[in-house]
């Protein structure tokens, strides 16, 4: 076996086709094939570090690599909340353009300063589901009890008149079944894997005007990176590019798979119109964006930079 072993940890199920697990596994395979005396050992499903502890372990060099929803570290770097901010991304095409923008430059600077670097970008899309009425324009959420994924969404939805119940995504199903929740807001993948289609009447798919996007890059610890030789670093960079390309190919497919499964189960599927999207953006500017700009030193600059992308 190889001289240098990198330990990669993530919270997603291993070997079951989860796209983030596939990305890490693909990198492990590529690095192995490059024959640079480097091996990536994957610990899926929180079998090493718990989801919330991965960032801290990574930047201290206790963990070499991770596939991490970056917002999980927003308690230590409030800037990261911008990577789970309603309406900042809008579509997969725009996510691609965002990756090379000044906005992501600012985010990646925070990542680098903290002691980590990005090997592959990934923006996952998500939507809304409800068993009350379709969630499109802001007035459709008023009176519904919703579970949102992330504090910024909580704030925006509450401002639009929804009640918020916080719980892990694994509990959405039973909460909907028993009427504690009317609707939920999470990633396309979670909607399918938690069988939410059995409990709802309407799905708002991401489409061209999606509010929900979350940044889940593959990261490496700066300490681990510096311990690699140039050949190994080159192999890892190449593997990261392959993983990123693989993800870009799969991303839209994840949304389509969700739409197919929900339709098969007789769920109505709708999209937001540009008018709906802009109405939500107005509410977000008054709520989540405003709070973010107030609490984060360069918060307003981050939002402006993200919105400036075509």
């Amino acid at each position: 076996s190889a001289e240098t072993v990198l330990r990669a940890s993530h919270q997603f199920p291993g070997g079951k086709g989860d796209v983030r697990d596939e990305m890490v596994q693909l990198m492990a395979k590529e690095v192995n094939a490059a024959d640079v005396d480097l091996e990536i050992q994957v610990y899926p499903g929180q079998s090493l570090f718990k989801a919330g502890e991965q960032w801290g372990a990574l930047v201290r060099g206790r963990l070499d690599m991770t596939a991490l929803p970056l917002d999980y570290a927003s308690g230590r770097h409030p800037e990261f909340s911008a990577t789970l901010m309603p309406g900042l991304v809008r579509s997969h095409d725009r996510a691609q353009r965002l990756n090379d923008s000044e906005f992501m430059g600012m985010i990646k600077k925070v990542i680098n300063d903290a002691g980590a670097r990005v090997l592959a970008d990934a923006w996952l899309a998500g939507g809304f589901a409800s068993n009350d009425r379709c969630i499109t324009s802001p007035d459709t959420v008023s009176g519904q009890t919703l579970r949102a994924a992330g504090p910024a969404f909580d704030e925006m939805l509450a401002t639009a008149g929804a009640s918020i119940a916080s719980m892990p995504s694994s509990e959405i199903y039973t909460a909907m079944q028993t009427g504690v929740l009317d609707g939920a807001n999470t990633s396309s993948g979670s909607f399918v894997s938690y069988r939410i289609y059995e409990q709802v009447t309407c799905l708002t798919a991401p489409g061209e005007n999606a509010l929900w996007f979350m940044y889940e890059p593959i990261l490496i610890s700066e300490q681990s990176w510096n311990n690699l030789n140039e050949e190994q670093q080159a192999a890892l960079t190449a593997a990261g590019e392959k993983a990123e390309a693989y993800f870009a190919k799969e991303a839209a497919g994840l949304d389509q798979k969700m739409i197919d499964v929900f339709k098969e189960n007789g769920v109505e599927v709708v999209n937001m119109t540009p008018e709906d999207y802009n109405a939500w953006l107005d509410i977000a500017k008054k709520s989540a964006y405003k709070t973010f700009a107030e609490n984060v030193p360069n918060g307003q600059a981050l939002i402006d930079a993200a919105l400036a992308v075509e």
Partner: peptide, 17 residues
């Protein structure tokens, strides 16, 4: 196995558990 970092950050690991 992993060095002194495991001791220094032990509080965080323990609390998380």
């Amino acid at each position: 196995d992993r060095g002194m970092g495991e001791l220094i950050y032990f509080g965080e690991t323990f609390f998380g558990n």
